[in-house]
C-alpha cells in the first residue's frame, strides 16, 4: 500500500493530464456538433501542453530567469547552479505548441463558419442527411 502511494505521488501529474487528454479525444470522436468537436480538440491540445510543462518542474527551484543577471558579467558574477532553476526547455517547446493550437483553432472556426453558411446547421448528422438527399 505504501508502495502504491509512493507511485501515485510521483506520477499523479502525468495521470491527470492523460485523463484530460482522453476526455478531449473522446469529445472529438463522439460529439455530433462541429463546435463541440473543436472544443474537444482544444482540450486535447491544452492537456498535452500542461503535460509537457509539468515535466519541467524541479523541487526547490525557481523560475528560469537569472537573478543577478543584468549587472557585471565576468568577475563578480555569482555562480549559477542548474539545480536552482527549473528546466527551461519544456516552456520553450510549449510556447510553440500554444501558438500552433491557437492557429489550428482559428482555421477550424473559419471552416465551421463556411460549413454553417453552406448547410445552415452545425450538427453533423443533419449535414450528412442533406448531402445524401442531393
Amino acid at each position: 500500500m505504501g508502495d502504491l502511494i509512493q507511485i501515485v505521488v510521483a506520477k499523479y501529474n502525468y495521470w491527470i493530464y492523460i485523463t484530460l487528454m482522453m476526455i478531449g479525444l473522446y469529445a472529438m470522436i463522439v460529439k455530433n456538433n462541429l463546435v463541440k468537436k473543436i472544443v474537444g480538440m482544444n482540450i486535447f491540445q491544452t492537456a498535452i501542453i500542461l503535460f509537457y510543462v509539468s515535466t519541467g518542474a524541479k523541487r526547490g527551484a525557481t523560475i528560469p530567469i537569472l537573478e543577478h543577471g543584468h549587472g557585471e558579467h565576468g568577475a563578480g558574477a555569482h555562480m549559477i547552479h542548474a539545480v536552482d532553476y527549473i528546466n527551461p526547455l519544456p516552456h520553450v517547446l510549449m510556447l510553440t505548441a500554444i501558438v500552433v493550437a491557437v492557429a489550428t483553432l482559428g482555421v477550424a472556426l473559419a471552416l465551421a463558419i463556411r460549413v454553417y453558411n453552406r448547410y445552415d446547421t452545425l450538427e453533423e448528422d443533419e449535414i450528412l442527411a442533406q448531402i445524401r438527399e442531393k
Binding site: 487528454m21 479525444l25 472529438m28 462541429l34 468537436k37 480538440m41 486535447f44 491540445q45 498535452i48 503535460f51 509537457y52 515535466t55 526547455l89 519544456p90 505548441a97 489550428t104 482555421v107 477550424a108 471552416l111 465551421a112 463556411r114 460549413v115 453552406r118 448547410y119 449535414i127 448531402i131
Partner: peptide
C-alpha cells in the same frame, strides 16, 4: 463539400500531429 471534408481532415490531422507530439514528449522525458 470541400469545407466539410477539410474540417474532417483537420480533426484527424490534429489528432495525428498531437499523438506525434506526445511521442516526442515521452522520448524527451
Amino acid at each position: 463539400r470541400a469545407q466539410l471534408s477539410t474540417l474532417n481532415y483537420l480533426y484527424m490531422g490534429t489528432i495525428g500531429a498531437c499523438f506525434y507530439l506526445l511521442g516526442v514528449g515521452y522520448l524527451y522525458i
